[in-house]
């Protein structure tokens, strides 16, 4: 379990880092006034600089209200979070399968797997719901609207 003070420092560090990177890249694009107006780096440079300023302000705010932020707990490793991380991993796996197996097969696998992760133990119901939902998607998207959803790589 972390606390909001640590979180704030992490957010501030990340913000300052991103701000510096954006501003640095913007300098490369050019921030001088040209015949065509301000250089393409002007706007991103302003944004990057503002990110650095806001990052510093967060550090200041955290130092000033240190006690309040230390008392605020941030839960990142309880059973609920672990289940959320498993769901995230399942979503990433679904994405990979989407490219390989196409939409319908990968969605069927994800729907059953997702319901299982969320505690559904009635396999027949899970299969029935998944098939019904995918049939609806097929009728609407593929049949009526002619929107092509990803196909398996062996179909390409």
């Amino acid at each position: 379990m972390a606390n909001m003070k640590i979180c704030n420092y992490c957010v501030a560090a990340l913000t300052i880092l991103v701000g510096v990177l954006i501003a640095r890249a913007a300098l490369g694009y050019g921030i001088a006034m040209t015949f065509f107006g301000p250089g393409p780096g002007v706007w991103p440079f302003v944004l990057g600089s503002l990110l650095v300023v806001i990052g510093a302000l967060i550090v200041l705010d955290t130092v000033v209200h240190s006690r309040k932020f230390t008392a605020t707990k941030v839960i990142l490793n309880d059973a609920g979070c672990v289940r959320a991380y498993i769901m995230m991993a399942a979503a990433v796996l679904y994405l990979v399968l989407l490219v390989i197996l196409g939409f319908y097969i990968s969605s069927f696998i994800f729907l059953i797997g997702g319901m299982w992760i969320l505690g559904m133990r009635n396999l027949k119901l899970a299969v029935a719901v998944s098939l019904l939902f995918l049939a609806g998607v097929y009728v609407l998207f593929s049949y009526l609207l002619h929107i092509q959803l990803p196909l398996p790589i062996f179909f390409d």
Binding site: F103, F110, G113, G114, M115, G119, F133, V137
Partner: peptide, 15 residues
């Protein structure tokens, strides 16, 4: 129930 709805929302988000 949420255990049916959440995977369906994920698939809808993909579509």
């Amino acid at each position: 129930p949420k255990n049916i709805l959440l995977p369906i929302i994920t698939v809808m988000a993909m579509i």
